[in-house]
Amino acid sequence: MNKKQILKRLLQIVIVLIGISFITFALTFMSPGDPVRNMYTATGVMPTEEMIEETREELGLNDPFFVQYTRWLTNCVKGDFGKSYSLNKPVTELLLSRLWPTLKLTLMSMFLMLLISVPLGLISAIYKDKWMDYVIRALTFLGCSIPNFWMGLLLMLAFCVYIHAFPVISSSGDFKSLFLPALTLAIAMSAKYTRQVRTAVLDELSQDYVIGAEARGIKKSRIIWCNVFPNSLLPLTTMFGLSIGSLLGGTSVVEVIFSYPGLGNLAVSAITSSDYNLIQGYVLWMALIYMVINLLVDVSYRYIDPRMRLKE
């Protein structure tokens, strides 16, 4: 990617963000839940009709749609996503405080995923159509079909209730409480990733240079470690980047199961208490992070694959 392409992508990100902000804002505008009422019930006050009307006026909730939307959008651009109705704190502050735990969980599960899927994928490709390959393929198939929240509950049952090796509630954020949620996410992803590793390695193995090297009597293990494996890393980077992005958004179910204090958990509680500012802030931030990661992955090709630089 050259500079012009990167600029174009950045522009695209801005357009998509505006579109998403419009959709989420329109949705919350049309929604049946009443944030003011929720705000009062959260603090334990039984509000009168006048109080509600007054607060609505104060928060600007009685203005026409486009007035509210542009006001909100200009504030967002300035970095101010408003206040969370239910938690009575600035949205940006809340999101930032939860970002690190989710990031930790994401990185940990990516690490576990690589630990599981790369060796399995390699073995499966090298011993193609042998029993090991069949076992691994069957496992990946089952892994794709198992609901990750059930997997999480089963792991919890086994390791927290029966063996007491890990805490049931992972709110402290240390390694022990991080491990099971990360493992749950890693198992689900490994199932897909192992297949991808297998395909990528098989693709490389069928290249002519492998036959050439074999014909010259170079050891198979040397070919695999020095040529095939490094070459098959490129297609894997794309998937790696994409899965970081989808993980950041897809952790909510697992976070809820393990009561992990991350972004996903925050988002779910925001949704149940119709905390619009928080939902909108969360959705926009997630979209931004996801797209920036995808852009970085695309840019990184330039450095990983010299051919990309030659093309330009």
Binding site: V16, G249, G250, A267, I271, V283, M286, A287, Y290
Partner: peptide, 24 residues
């Protein structure tokens, strides 16, 4: 296609949750 791009540039479950949550 621009709408489709917008949806793709985005982790699906996040938006699905937001939509379902907002609508009840």
């Amino acid at each position: 296609m621009r709408i489709a791009d917008m949806m793709l540039a985005f982790p699906g479950l996040v938006l699905a949750l937001a939509v379902a949550g907002i609508m009840g």
